[in-house]
Design a protein around this nucleic acid. Structure first.
Lengths: 144, 144
DNA sequence: AAGATTTAAGAGTCTCTTGTCATAAATACT
DNA sequence: AGTATTTATGACAAGAGACTCTTAAATCTT
């Protein structure tokens, strides 16, 4: 698995919140509601969303009508930001064989190919905003 | 991390043994020696190589002058075979978001891009034989 | 002010992978 | 035959990540 569970839940939750923010970007969505929709543990999701609020990707608000919302326009939030908040260096600075100090001039046997593939993926994440995905979601209705 | 530690050690060990088999493909290399060269735990490596011998990628022999050797010419062993022995389906059948039943006609938001990247990687592993890498190793002397 | 709602924070548990070890089995050598 | 060498097997320990729960803090409503 490329991403940690936390990162995965983080992405899915961010997408859900971004979709909801299309209709109303000011109000907060309770974490309990997100957890139910994504079918993940409320307790765990709470922890995970704290990571995103600390990274200033989301904002939270306590009390009645509280919850979380995106901290910025979803046009300005890219997948890489979310991935970074959880485990970016683990993915994109990594050697496929886990060898320390693997780099262009001292490569592991899989260095070249992995560099190519992960670079390509990294670009996708750098270029894909939440807004882009929510628009696709409108057309395509993909699963979350 | 894309691969499990076991898979990583398996690949590295197979490469080392394949390199040694260039000079002498009949004799067995003691696991203890491999473990020292790769700087991994002998005990753990023993377990891991059992997976490769059960998959008939390597052969083992007990007693003095025992050890492991490749079960076939390294021209005929592809990285995908080794990966498969450990955790193939975990990598190449996977949805990046871990969603069950994610597929072309019911995709997750990252399905298309991940399919492309992992397909490309999968092809590399399907086409890269141990022999090819050992030849590169002769030229390049990459790290293991 | 009191009670209800909702996130924050920290401690604790579960599970799976990683890693260790002791013992058994096979083989070679003398 | 006996001993040394080496892999096989199964039990076990350690660590990390995933997940749960309890209590605290903030906010709203009445």
């Amino acid at each position: 698995m490329l991403f940690s569970q936390s990162c995965i839940y983080g992405i899915r939750a961010a997408l859900l919140v971004a979709i909801r923010s299309q209709k109303d970007s000011d109000s907060f969505t309770p974490i309990r509601m997100i957890a139910e929709e994504l079918n993940v543990s409320f307790y765990f999701l709470t922890k995970i969303l704290q990571t995103l609020t600390k990274a200033r990707i989301m904002e939270s608000y306590k009390g009645p009508n509280g919850g979380v919302r995106m901290a910025m326009a979803s046009e300005d939030i890219y997948l890489i930001d979310i991935i970074e908040a959880f485990d970016e260096d683990k993915v994109f600075d990594s050697c496929l064989l886990g060898l320390p100090g693997c780099r262009d001039d001292d490569p592991c046997p899989l260095h070249k190919e992995w560099k190519k593939s992960k670079g390509q993926l990294q670009k996708v994440f750098q270029r894909t905003s939440l807004a882009k995905l929510t628009k696709e979601a409108d057309r395509l209705m993909f699963r979350l």
